[in-house]
């Protein structure tokens, strides 16, 4: 797009693009604005974009009432823990599929992805019972396992596409230089694929953070993350809009910020390398 465009056309497209972007973003913006209003002005008719009596009280109240730090910490532990564990399992698998491909490699990848198509609700009861039997209900380790398995196919896929871009010759050179399999992966493959591994990590932290089915089914209090916390806020009638907004903002802010910083890598990762 190196062509010169007339300033008039540029102004028009800029206006159109910004309008569309603001419409898409507006619910998030409105939620953030509402979180700083008092409850009465949050439901004032006609609605006001900005109010004079803005307040931090909602945040303070949500903080006190709900033990936010514990939910937050659980979210961090669950999303990071499940992703790191997933990477540890997936890096060797992706290495094998990318550098020692066989006739069945493609089928295996497809099969892995197809496990994600199984509706979670369909296997909810048996899985709950298994977790109950193993004493994993409402434990962090149980949730870490569940989230890890849920995202494993995506982690393997993403790593596979990143690894495939690394020339096999470099790994062969390491082998000639006397590196064993373990050293080859630690000293050569992992550092070279670091950007890809980082974007895989980010995306899966986000997916795990936002997971709201298993976290609700498999936790009660001790291991419940922010997605379960927000579910407990989700049936207010009218009067709690400001607090609902504050709680929601607190639940999504960490991931929103993380996501904005890494959006370029995320998009590439999510396409499984199929779109350059």
């Amino acid at each position: 797009m190196a062509r010169a465009t007339s300033p008039r056309r540029k102004a028009l497209t800029t206006l159109a693009a910004w309008s569309v972007a603001l419409v898409i973003f507006f619910p998030v913006l409105w939620m953030i604005l509402t979180s700083f209003k008092t409850e009465p002005s949050a439901v004032a008719m006609p609605p006001q974009l900005f109010t004079a009596d803005w307040t931090l009280e909602n945040y303070a109240e949500v903080w006190q009432r709900s033990d936010y730090p514990r939910f937050f910490w659980n979210s961090v532990v669950l999303s990071l823990g499940s992703t790191l564990l997933g990477l540890a399992v997936a890096i060797p698998a992706a290495w094998a599929m990318a550098f020692v491909p066989g006739k069945k490699t493609k089928d295996l990848l497809m099969w892995m992805l197809s496990t994600k198509m199984m509706p979670a609700v369909a296997v909810m009861i048996p899985l709950y019972l298994v977790f109950l039997k193993l004493g994993l209900i409402d434990t962090r380790i149980g949730l870490v396992l569940a989230l890890m398995l849920m995202n494993l196919p995506i982690i393997v896929w993403m790593l596979y596409t990143y690894f495939k871009e690394i020339p096999a010759e470099i790994l062969e050179a390491a082998r000639m230089d006397g590196a064993g399999l373990f050293k080859e992966i630690v000293y050569v493959l992992t550092p070279m694929a670091l950007p890809g591994i980082a974007s895989t990590l980010l995306l899966n932290v986000i997916l795990a953070w936002n997971e709201a089915f298993w976290t609700i089914i498999l936790t009660t209090t001790k291991a419940a993350p922010l997605s379960a916390f927000i579910a407990s806020f989700s049936a207010p009638q009218g009067l709690f809009y400001a607090k609902l907004s504050a709680a929601s903002t607190m639940a999504i802010a960490p991931i929103l910020i993380l996501g904005w910083f890494s959006q370029k890598q995320l998009v590439r990762g999510l396409t499984f390398g199929a779109v350059k």
Binding site: E169, I170, E172, A173, M176, D177, A179, Y187, P191, M192
Partner: peptide
């Protein structure tokens, strides 16, 4: 045996010094 590859197969994340020293480190 030592091998020199068509694409050179240098380790892009290591300095020249570390590249040359890699087999010795191993």
């Amino acid at each position: 045996l030592a091998m020199v590859f068509q694409s050179y197969a240098l380790y892009p994340h290591m300095s020249v010094r570390k590249n040359i020293a890699f087999p010795l480190k191993m």
